[in-house]
Amino acid sequence: MTNYAILEALNNVDDECVKNAKTTTIKTPGKFKTSGLRWGAMVACFCLLLVVSIMAVYQIQNGADPNGPTIPPVTNNTSDSQLSVEQGICVGGKLYMPDTELSEKATKENIGVVVGPVSFDNKTTLDVYAYEYLPNDGKTSRVIVPVKDSFYVYSFYSYMPNDNENWIIDLLSQAAYVEIRDVNYYGTATVYSKISDNELDAIIEFLSLLGEPHTRNENELDQYYFDKFKNQFKEGEIWISEDGGISLGGNQTVINKFDDLVNGESRIIVVVMEDSTYLTYHYFEGAGVIRLEDFGYGYILTEEQIEKINHLIDLI
């Protein structure tokens, strides 16, 4: 049997099926998929309420400016799109509730195409809107996420920094807006229109109240995840993300890790697939844990690098 035979056999598929294939039912954003998630959302709401109350008391007691710092205006780099945060965002100790008008602007029409769900803690809660707002910087694909069950938002989708070592700094310096990310590696803060250090500190303070990992120091963050994972996995174990596995290429996948291949960075993973080769970053050095995520891939390797990887695979 040839693959042509299957192609030809498909020609006799039921007419209705063929016709219906082109009529898509778009999923409703933000619907809860599991009862666990629903409970999680309720707990999140409760925590939010609790923290807001604490902060209100704190502000009253300390005579803080009742207006709090203002969110800086969207820079020229950005589109008119604003953040759609359904339950507010805390900046500088003040909780900003969503602005209806601005939220309405953050629609598919003016942000971009929904490119897929993003998963926090292996639960699909959000929809990712890709859009472009940084002109001519070669890193145009960003996302903005209307949050449904928390005040977290997520940016940075296929951001591909030029410098591996300083990619977070690179991101922070160029991002038009840094947003807070849910529990995740590098889960500190992200920006929407560049926020000040004071504001970022306030976010970090806020996160600390929530018990979230919070640091601007990459090494500290690595340490956090080292601590988090070291007892969870065995040395050398490959942790495959639950949301989709590692079927990145759709074909049989070979995974290998290698050290010191790019810029001496040892926390780099190579995902080699039959049809392509990608790099991804999620190796927690010292923890012996490799985290592979289905939606993330970075650089396409050079021929030279691929050759080196193949050599490493041969050795294994």
Binding site: K22, T24, I26, K27, V113, V114, V115, G116, P117, D127, V128, G244, G245, S247, L248, G249, G250, N251, D294, F295
Partner: peptide
Amino acid sequence: KQFEFSESKVKSMLY
């Protein structure tokens, strides 16, 4: 684009 899925999701599903 049609299904508003990520690339990896589509590839994974097809696989």
